[in-house]
């Protein structure tokens, strides 16, 4: 502790550069994905049952057909929104999209962004109860 090395300034500069890079990465990645998230959410909202099923995340799709119905049959009986996109929030590999008549949650996998939850109603204290989601 008493013996900080003479090369400290160089190491400090390296650490600061790494720190700035990490923060810039955090800030940059979220905004870069926003157009794609908006497009997927908009397509989901304007599609028919089969089109919506094609945009669901695999785990959400699996959960939806557990009752024995096909995905399109299950989706058309649920209050999934079809309104315009109002706002988009992207944080890491997760996103939230407010439609005029629903709230969607999306997640990113190797194939791109997919809808992980829909037909979500506010349940107080900022949380949502979703009728379409992975179990």
């Amino acid at each position: 502790m008493a013996s900080a090395g003479s090369g400290f300034s160089g190491r400090a500069a390296l650490l600061l550069t790494l720190a700035a890079g990490l923060v810039a990465t955090v800030a940059g990645c979220s905004s870069a994905d926003e157009p794609e998230v908006r497009d997927i959410a908009s397509s989901f909202a304007s599609s028919g049952p089969q089109g919506r099923c094609d945009l669901l995340a695999p785990a959400t799709l699996t959960s939806l057909v557990q009752g024995g119905e096909s995905c399109p049959e299950a989706v058309q009986h649920l209050p999934v929104g079809s309104g315009e996109v109002v706002s988009v929030e992207v944080w890491g590999v997760d996103a939230q999209v407010h439609l005029t008549d629903d709230t969607l949650f999306l997640t990113r996998d190797d194939t791109g962004w997919r809808v992980s939850a829909a037909a979500c109603a506010p349940a107080g204290k900022g949380s949502y109860l979703c009728q379409v989601e992975a179990s």
Binding site: V26, A27, S30, E89, W91, G92, V93, D94, A95, Q96, F105, T107, A117, C120, G126, S127, Y128, L129, C130, E133
Partner: peptide, 15 residues
């Protein structure tokens, strides 16, 4: 950022 990602994964609003 990490907290908000967890919020969204748990179907909660970001802060």
């Amino acid at each position: 950022s990490a907290f908000n990602a967890e919020q969204l994964a748990g179907h909660e609003d970001p802060v």
